[in-house]
Design a binder for these strands. Sequence first.
DNA 1: CGATTTAATTTGACTTACAAATTAAAATCA
DNA 2: TGATTTTAATTTGTAAGTCAAATTAAATCG
Lengths: 401, 401
Amino acid sequence: MAVLQREHGRRVLLEQIRQSGRVPRIELADKTGISRATVTTITAEFLQNGLIEEVAREDSDGDARRGRPRVDLKIRGDARLIAGVKVSSLKLSLVLLDFEGSQIATLETELDQTRQSPDKLAGDIRDAVAQLAEVAGHAPSDVSGVGIGIAGMVQAGGGFVHWSPSLNERNVQFGAVLTDVLGVPAFIDNDANLVAVAEHRFGLGKTHNDFIVVTIESGVGMGLMIGGELYRGTRGCGAEFGHTKVHLDGALCRCGQRGCLEAYVADYALLREASIVAATNDDEDSSARVKSLLSAAKQGDPAAKTIVDRAGRMFAMGLANLVNIFDPELIILAGEQMQFDHLFADDVITAMRKSIVQIDKPPPDVVIHKWGDLMWAQGAAAYALDKVSELALAGLSDHAA
Amino acid sequence: MAVLQREHGRRVLLEQIRQSGRVPRIELADKTGISRATVTTITAEFLQNGLIEEVAREDSDGDARRGRPRVDLKIRGDARLIAGVKVSSLKLSLVLLDFEGSQIATLETELDQTRQSPDKLAGDIRDAVAQLAEVAGHAPSDVSGVGIGIAGMVQAGGGFVHWSPSLNERNVQFGAVLTDVLGVPAFIDNDANLVAVAEHRFGLGKTHNDFIVVTIESGVGMGLMIGGELYRGTRGCGAEFGHTKVHLDGALCRCGQRGCLEAYVADYALLREASIVAATNDDEDSSARVKSLLSAAKQGDPAAKTIVDRAGRMFAMGLANLVNIFDPELIILAGEQMQFDHLFADDVITAMRKSIVQIDKPPPDVVIHKWGDLMWAQGAAAYALDKVSELALAGLSDHAA
DNA sequence: CGATTTAATTTGACTTACAAATTAAAATCA
DNA sequence: TGATTTTAATTTGTAAGTCAAATTAAATCG
């Protein structure tokens, strides 16, 4: 039982070092409340195992300090390699991080089909990871862990995929399949959850432990960070914000139910309406048609404007409901395409603010964060980074090297 | 720092004893994973401080066990007295519990006005608690802690009330006022949260660590239990389920916004509509009018039926949204009056099930729990019981008696 | 160069948890 | 009935851990 205490100390210190970037021991002691003696002991262990390294202090505010100088500690980037993979409908986006979280390489590869068998997809991922490692001049076996973000219903703990648009089977132990095929530990989760992790470790959520990330891709997703921990629902499944109902017996959603938020804000929802008033040209592909719809709305075309406005107001309503329930400090709207600009418009945010319960404290900040597919891969990698760190610490407990 | 470890053991053991009712040491060791030696040490300390007591084992399945018999431990009821208070619009409901959680006495007293000054209300609560103690043959000073449940926006941690229908001031440090006036520690929280605590400790949630309680009184409230902990939102405020929006630009709510769930299911919402079609008799008081509306609906009156049905469907939609976001194992619908039967109807539950995201696992159980005002008071007391237990354990750490 | 200052490490006391040994208290057996 | 067996609870001794205080290390200052 006493070993638990030490493990806790190790976890706290490694986390603190990672978060600080470079930090001297004495500050670690101050920040964590762990005594200097124990900090020395644990950091010595980390040093010996190559998890961290000492670096000469590059003093910020003038070197004019008396006394023995502080020696900064930092995560040793070379200690581990971590890959993150985002599975999109027709491509894989990958990023390779070192143990510090610095980006070493990125890669995009195409997929044959949107839906594939678990084995095929796992094989594709294995090949892509191998290629990614090669690009960076490493062997595939140098990679210590791979994080995978995938759309759908994922039970992250067990690596179980209830359903995903990228798989042609339901109820797959995809985490196990991946670990098997890749030959290294694989960690899988719903992609929106992983964006929340990425924001927490690298992005706008770095200064917050409680925030909501809403992602807009083809569907609407959500990731919840509560107290620095990803909240995955009581049974490990992601929150399905896109299918919260915003209208009784409302528009038909592709999930088969009516009134889902997604059925009002997703691209297919917009196009469905556009086709009725013929605001767009049917010859174009769907992405182009959405664009022309949006520009028509901006130009003042009344029909287009009605469609787009309603999407915005529905989105504001869904957002307000989240705020009413979670009362977060911060909302991060994350999306790639310009085509969702109308949902990020000031009117929408204003409408949301008007729909939340008024109390005498400021409403949550809303920030918009536009990243490419790399964001998603980065999130997957961040998740794997956490997991690999845990494994590294667990390794210390066993054979006290 | 090592003292933290011991504190953790104490907390776990006391909680386990309380949850078990009566339990021998060896089972405590098995259930908690704490070694027998340590269990002996810690329980000895509890015994010496009068927090628990040994009782002869009344064996369940025949006494025919060889060997030294187990000796049951249980919480010593006399150790502490705890009061719980529910503040309603025109009355206080109180319950007195012993340290085991057994009900010792109850009391109801009237309030002069719905809204009062913090000092006046605190005084009324002090008098009621004194009276409650007296009924049970105790001095008011015997009470170790008082829990107070109140409607409105409460930041439980700091005892801060942003707003409450029972107070004529906003932004009151009501917890501090109460502790001061009562002379014993007072713990305040939103009443719906406390119902969740009551269900967790005494009721249907005893076997679950993750569930949602939806309360229906004059408004609609919600309490969230996540991982055995009450989730209060990131800033300590209760979740405002009643004001989640279920219709864009919908019915006017008494909060001033439009489309709130409450604006469709609360009694005033039903009556507003009833008055239009004159389905009820205006001479009656509001409660009676609601009753006649509901019975008219049951009789098949079309106008009444429309009104009541819509309330049910809106409620189902709000509930489904909760499920989609939280994915709980269990939903407890808690309400007192028969007048909300229509919201608890099978149709409503069925409609809710149809609106949640379908995955290959069973939908959450829904149970209906009708209690009187005592439930609310019991919740307040349960909360105080937890807090007083913490205080008792904190007391042990200091002067190692 | 010695005094001073600050960081990091080492030392020694103290706390804690636990496995193993011991004691306690019953039923069973001869 | 008294020895034996069985199980619970306690005691003992050891190992692990934390931390305050003392010590050592490495710089600046005068």
